[in-house]
């Protein structure tokens, strides 16, 4: 994109009509411009992007328009259906569901993004180290295999149960659980990224530009940062989008099993878990948080799909 800007600036300076004509015929194309153009042709991905951005906007700014406090108890108006005052109804303590879904969305999305970032950083570091530094390859890949063989969900449950109370004491009930959940989702989901990145790095490091960089005396870590890393951004970005989806699902699953966030600090999964005991009375209570999770994950998966196509040079331009 920046390249396009530069070219446009240069053209406005040079008043050569022939040049302008040639540029109009063959406009300068940057890598990310191509990616964006391909991405736009993927209908599902575009719809997904709009939905996802919409969800983010509602979750972030929704509480400014729907001003009821999610924790406000209005016991007279408990278990209500949809109404103008409470568009999503109320729960068994008279708390407004829409406000709770908005508040829960903030936590769920934040968990998804932060856990994804942590697992990406871990995965990228392990992948680049294993791919670039031969002696580290064996041990790091055995470690990855080992992590892949761990039964993740049972382990997550055990770790949460055992470490929840001490962390709560240390950081307060909300932050403690947040740190714990983000941390364990992050350290148990980096393996796929590491494998993909390692594969790409192995292929990249035999290329001429790495040889050129080495021959002028660039240090290894600088080659990694300057030359290898920008080139493995595509697979990392795809696993980033898919990572958000799986982190949100994992957090909701944990909350759904009653081992995630406490109910006074709701997330979508927790709202679903609390609502399922009232299915007979107010079935819509499980519907809204469930729909929110499903829509978010669906849109993110579509974005990931579109990104993968857009970043794949074999598909792009076809």
């Amino acid at each position: 994109m920046t390249d396009m800007g530069k070219t446009a600036g240069m053209n406005s300076g040079s008043a050569q009509p022939a040049d302008a004509f040639a540029d109009a015929l063959h406009p300068h194309r940057s890598h990310w411009g191509d990616v964006w153009r391909q991405f736009r042709t993927h209908k599902g991905a575009m719809v997904g992007t709009f939905v996802f951005v919409g969800i983010i906007l509602v979750v972030v700014f929704g509480s400014y328009f729907h001003t009821i406090d999610p924790q406000f108890l209005d016991i007279r108006n408990k278990n209500q259906g949809m109404s103008f005052a409470h568009p999503f109804g109320t729960d068994n303590l008279g708390r407004d569901m829409l406000a709770q879904v908005i508040a829960g969305g903030r936590v769920s999305l934040l968990v998804g993004v932060v856990a994804m970032a942590l697992s990406l950083v871990l995965g990228a570091i392990v992948g680049v180290l294993a791919g670039f530094f031969k002696p580290l390859d064996g041990p790091l890949m055995r470690l990855t295999d080992l992590f892949l063989a761990l039964p993740i969900l049972p382990l997550l449950l055990v770790i949460i149960l055992l470490f929840r109370d001490p962390l709560r004491k240390q950081f307060g009930p909300e932050t403690g659980v947040f740190i714990l959940i983000v941390f364990i989702i992050g350290i148990t989901s980096w393996m796929q990224t590491a494998r993909i990145v390692r594969g790409d790095v192995l292929a990249l490091k035999e290329r001429e530009f790495v040889l050129a960089a080495r021959s002028i005396g660039t240090r290894s870590w600088k080659i990694v940062l300057r030359h290898i890393f920008p080139n493995v951004m595509s697979p990392i970005m795809v696993s980033a989008t898919l990572g958000i989806a799986s982190a949100i699902i994992t957090e909701s699953a944990l909350s759904f099993l009653g081992l995630g966030f406490p109910s006074d600090y709701p997330t979508w999964g927790r709202l679903l878990f609390d609502g399922k005991d009232f299915i007979q009375l107010t079935p819509t209570r499980v519907l809204w948080p469930g729909l929110a999770i499903s829509l978010t994950v669906l849109s993110v998966n579509y974005i990931g799909d579109g990104l993968r196509d857009a970043l794949d040079p074999r598909i792009r331009g076809r």
Partner: peptide
């Protein structure tokens, strides 16, 4: 796509 995006608990 819906099938594997919508979690089983929902």
């Amino acid at each position: 796509m819906i099938g594997f995006s919508v979690p089983t608990f929902f």
